[in-house]
Design a protein around this nucleic acid. Structure first.
Lengths: 131, 131
DNA sequence: CTGCACCTTGGAGCGCGCTCGAACGCAAGC
DNA sequence: GCTTGCGTTCGAGCGCGCTCCAAGGTGCAG
């Protein structure tokens, strides 16, 4: 027998913060700033209740942010998603452009890291042979 | 016969900016902020004259910055270099720690990128079959 | 000699992404 | 019922890394 209990599916802002690795401040800020797909639903007392869909979306935001997408672009993407079907090509364009930037940056960072590693090698030689 | 001409070895701030990809503003800012190994030498008229060593050091700064090292840590590293021999182990510690952070971040970004790519795949399927 | 571009300094300003403070409300345990 | 703690809103503040402005000096072309 499945218990139908909304609160079992729903997290307080503190719980959502823990789950997502964000702070409660940041969660409210994201909502204010239009990064979420809509206002988070509330309990009778007016407290935020995060559902699974909210959490999943926030995970996606985290991925985009962690790969360097600016807030304003996440918002643009969220705006498109909020508008519903019909603009998938546009969303795809944003994701494609983002992926390309990330790949470019990955290879740039990797290259710089190589140079830094060579520098480290020089220091290790020098520290290894102190005299 | 080698011509000894200091000005041939020396760049104006605008030239240094072009060479390093920074702006003149940023070059002055880095100097002010102690990221360079010392004050850049000047012409008789008081204008900055960047030598090869300056440019090489700035390239190193660029690598560190491009891989995400904060300004204040670059400054700490520069401080150590400025102090001369004897603290190579400490410099090495900074570079090691930085390398480890960069590697961790590279793998994190790569992982997130994978998830984003899967999302892209979903959209491509959906856009590919419009009805 | 006169422009005009480029340099100098000090300090203010700005865009980003949070982060925090104030003042208050609701709720669950003792 | 009272305390303790988590929640709410609005708005201000902050750390980072530049970025720019004002006011003035320098240097070279015409």
């Amino acid at each position: 027998m499945t218990t139908i209990d909304a609160s079992a599916e729903t997290l307080s802002i503190a719980e959502a913060a823990e789950r997502t690795g964000l702070t409660t401040h940041t969660l409210r800020y994201y909502e204010r700033d239009g990064l979420l797909l809509g206002p988070v639903s509330r309990t009778a007392a007016g407290r935020r209740a995060y559902g699974p869909a909210d959490l999943q979306w926030i995970e996606m935001i985290n991925r985009l942010r962690a790969t360097g997408m600016p807030i304003r672009e996440v918002r643009a993407y969220a705006d498109l998603c909020r508008m519903g079907d019909g603009n998938e090509a546009e969303r795809l364009g944003i994701l494609h452009a983002h992926r390309d930037r990330v790949l470019a940056q990955l290879s740039e960072v990797t290259e710089h890291l190589g140079a830094i590693n060579r520098k480290i090698g020089i220091y290790e030689d020098r520290v290894g042979t102190p005299s």
